[in-house]
Amino acid sequence: MFYPIQLLADWLTYTVFRIAPKTLLGGAVNFFIFDTIKIFILLFVIIFAVSIIRSYLPPEKIRAILSRKNKYVGNVLASLLGIITPFCSCSAIPLFLGFVQAGVPLGTTFSFLIASPMINEVALVLLLGLFGWKIALIYIISGLIIAIVSGIVIGHLKVENLVESFVYENSINGNMDLPSMTRKERIAYALDYTKDILKKVWPYILIGIGLGAWIHGYLPADFLAQYAGSGKWYAVPLAVLIGIPLYSNAAGVIPLVSALTEKGVSMGTTLAFMMSVTALSLPEFMILKKVMKLKLIFIFAGIVAVGIIFTGYLFNFIL
């Protein structure tokens, strides 16, 4: 599928820049050009497509769906709908308040809060482009399971008392009618959204792919196996810990990690790391402090972290 891009990358590297093939520099430059073009094409196409779908299913409509569902169905639906919803920590509070005040159960709300940032379109493009569809699929399915199970567990813990009391003082009608959009407006919205995201992530992606290309070309294979191979028990929890403060750089982290995988970091550890980067976000926790007690944030982060660590060990074992 990406063969024409490879031809273009070869032509640019070896003919235009006149770098000798089969050298370290040639390999790194070729890798950088190929990956950059491929990722940006994928980003544009997929973000645009997801934005069009989303224009039919804005969070307000999702809330109306979720407020009518029973517990378990709600957790599954919330996690699935979380996939197409973008998640910017800007929206964490309005989402949380909007869901809870319209009567969506707390556990369902958490399923959504977990799935939405973890399974986002930028991460999916990077996984698909750099790791292939199998790993992307494993990531989506494990992410969904973590979101569903964590939401159900939080729902059973009966932690409503750990939500700040003002949250429950208001209740709103979740069935508002949004003005419907014409097809032209949907396309304009999707283009705006795609540009908005690309503008935000392109430097991180370039830096990530650049460092990745350097690693690809210059570090010996298996360089990291002795530190982070599947035999090292501490690799998974350590990866999760390192991932927590990196959320805003998720776009740059994934290309970097894909190169590290080639050099001996095992797949389960890589998956756990990426999930931690996207799902456990320090800035989001700090923002959520406005609406819930610290204890609930720890419970939430703890359950998700356990899920991610389990996934990491599982795939280190299987793959």
Binding site: P59, E60, S91, P94, L95, L97, G98, N170, I172
Partner: peptide, 11 residues
């Protein structure tokens, strides 16, 4: 709260 009471959930 202004956002939420308008029924909107994004910022």
């Amino acid at each position: 709260n202004k956002i939420v009471s308008m029924g909107i959930m994004s910022s």
